[in-house]
Amino acid sequence: MSPVVVGIADLKFAEPPHKLVSYGLGSCVAIVLHSKEDILGAMAHIMLPLAYSHRDHETPGKFADTAVAAMVHQVEARGLGPSRFVAKLAGGADMFAGHFKGTGRRIGARNILAARKTLDHFGIRLVAQDVGGTAGRSVEFSIETGLLTVRTLRGEVKEM
């Protein structure tokens, strides 16, 4: 069964036996929501912390705040409450170690912070995270087991 690939600025829901994957996260953050009871999972691959204008809501997967809000909206549309879900985060590295001075400045750290705050705002418990540092990550999420596997090019594998 081929995995459901979540590209940059995208968000997707999936059910078993599918797995959700996202490749090559640098400063971007994968936000995973999972409900064990409902056997439902979602992943967003956000690139920026906060939406600037109403037009940004056309691409909710691009920003941490709109991505979490859109996922909650879709959860509610299925008749479920967001509190049934837990969250996991991965990514948010500082790839060019402080080089960018514009909107890319400390973007990884700002993405992580925005994701945490927005999850908190919606009452979604953050249960695991592998964030920060200076290395890229690829992630795979099993909706069946709730396990998020994070890999780096250095051969590190974390399951959480």
């Binding site: 940059i8 996260l25 640098g26 971007c28 790839m95 890229g136």
Partner: peptide, 9 residues
Amino acid sequence: DMAGAILDA
């Protein structure tokens, strides 16, 4: 690093 992670920034 990974190509995608480099492009992200």
